[in-house]
Design a protein around this nucleic acid. Structure first.
Lengths: 191, 191
DNA sequence: TGCGTGTTTAATACTAACTATTAGTATGTG
DNA sequence: CACATACTAATAGTTAGTATTAAACACGCA
């Protein structure tokens, strides 16, 4: 196996298995640890601990941002059953790397979770939505979403209108039909 | 500050700032490193490197799912400009903890990113969407999304229809109007 | 006053997974 | 053969620890 081949292999192996130590790599390629270290230094690849740290740090924030939070964005005000406002600071991790334009599903996620927060039923789910992305959002812009309940048919269906602005300009407008309680049971997956 | 107080403080501090070393902690609490180590061992808290590793590993998979990947879900097949299929394995982290129902914006995200993947322009953004969530999805279900380009007006606007199923049942149907190239320039944020 | 107990600190030896540097071997090519 | 390229070895130093033993210190109280 040539040096070039080993190095490109090393690079792709580490992409798939970033937690491999130099020792494990040296066994994998049948060369000495020193050679692996030389390869890494030439390729500009940091050591395991650094790689692990980077992975952990990079993921720490973004997972909190959309992975686990009950609401995407920060809830600024809330009048249950009537209206609410939330703020989302966009960053690089939410955008396409090439264009720096925020992926629309983050904008949607903020609006959707705000709509559900305004309704506040343990069993509310989005049934229908109409969304218009009026202009692209660039990473770094602060998104202010304002939700208003515009119709509430009895207890099991509400219509929420969400408008999102960035620096005063409208970027998104969506209508969410949210189903609650009993209605959810009907919709639930057939067992 | 009592020992008990310090220990509970330590525990919550490390939850918020998991990357603190024993040395930094000893400064923060004004006690020796040894004391911090004693505290950690009593509380069963592993060292920084271990904590970092756990964070990195835990998030490695899930972040790829929605944080950074260019596409949410796994791309199964793709015929550029025509159609595509993607698969998303849902889990607890995508659902409301109380009901185990997957948040709709994950379903939307899969569909949205698939729609964009099918168009494949470096400068494509979603301009409009119409989404219907036909029935709730429970964490654990596998979502198969199928996208089809149904209209392509010249070079700068396409309409993509996405239908998502789980175990053969339709769960989502959405229409995405995707703007490309020059069209994006017009939409772009006013400087 | 002294004794014990709990809490904290110090000291020492050891570990993994490195970096950085210098030197040495092996192999092939002009 | 000489020389370069690639590889390996050896050594010292680093970080962030573990594990263990021992010493200092405060308090409570008989």
């Amino acid at each position: 196996m040539s040096k070039e081949h080993r190095r490109s292999q090393l690079q792709s192996d580490l992409k798939r298995h970033p937690f491999l130590t130099d020792e494990e790599l040296s066994e994998r390629f049948g060369v000495s640890i020193q050679t692996i270290r030389l390869d890494r230094s030439v390729l500009g690849i940091p050591d395991v601990r650094e790689r692990t740290r980077i992975l952990a740090e990079r993921n720490y924030a973004s997972v909190r941002a959309i992975g686990h939070a009950e609401i995407v964005g920060e809830l600024l005000e809330l009048e249950l059953g009537r209206s609410g406002t939330s703020l989302l600071n966009t960053d690089d991790s939410m955008a396409f790397s090439k264009t720096q334009l925020v992926r629309s599903h983050f904008i949607f996620a903020q609006a959707d979770s705000l709509a559900l927060a305004v309704i506040d039923s343990d069993h509310a789910v989005t049934g229908l939505s109409n969304a218009k992305f009026k202009r692209p959002v660039t990473a770094g812009e602060r998104l202010l979403a304002r939700a208003e309940v515009i119709r509430s048919r009895d207890e099991d269906e509400s219509v929420v209108l969400v408008e999102t602005t960035a620096g005063g300009h409208k970027v998104f407008r969506g209508k969410f039909v949210v189903a609650q309680k009993a209605a959810v049971e009907d919709l639930r997956a057939p067992v």
